[in-house]
């Protein structure tokens, strides 16, 4: 029965970059609650912007519009970081967790990998601030 379930999942492609996965991998933390206190602010430096360009732009695009070179090949489009309407509904803690733990861990598209072993927490915090620059918005 379990094998059949897996096959059905595969046939439907449900797990691949599904925006609303039903379960998180072991070790993943719960998504941050909206309104949760923001992560400590980290200034955006030239290094932050370079980091975004080097790693994030592959999917999110050079200007953060979600149009990176991988975008058209993904089942779920990468997040447009200039979309104020959406990003102001996300807390800084949620953005931090999405970067650190990956999309799947925070109930979003699993196309977004976990960067927690690539960046330290300060770098991730500065990337959160950079996304706030791109969207010209803050969390509610």
């Amino acid at each position: 029965m379990m094998a059949l379930s897996i096959v059905l999942m595969l046939m439907s492609g449900m797990w691949a970059c599904d925006p609303e996965p039903t379960s998180a991998p072991p070790g993943a933390s719960a998504p941050a609650e909206p309104g949760k206190p923001s992560v400590p602010a980290q200034p955006v430096t030239r290094q932050t912007r370079d980091t975004y360009q080097f790693y994030c732009a592959q999917c999110h695009g050079l200007k953060g519009k979600g149009d990176g070179i991988n975008a058209r090949f993904l089942t779920v489009p990468p997040r447009d970081h200039t979309k104020t309407d959406y990003l102001e509904t996300r807390s800084d803690a949620q953005l931090f967790d999405a970067i650190k733990l990956g999309g799947l861990a925070v109930g979003r598209a699993p196309c977004m990998p976990a960067w927690g072993h690539t960046f330290n927490d300060d770098t991730i915090r500065s990337l959160v601030r950079h996304i706030r620059e791109l969207c010209h918005c803050e969390a509610f």
Partner: peptide
Amino acid sequence: ERDYSCIAC
């Protein structure tokens, strides 16, 4: 594909 997102790139 799902846990490690390799398919994105």
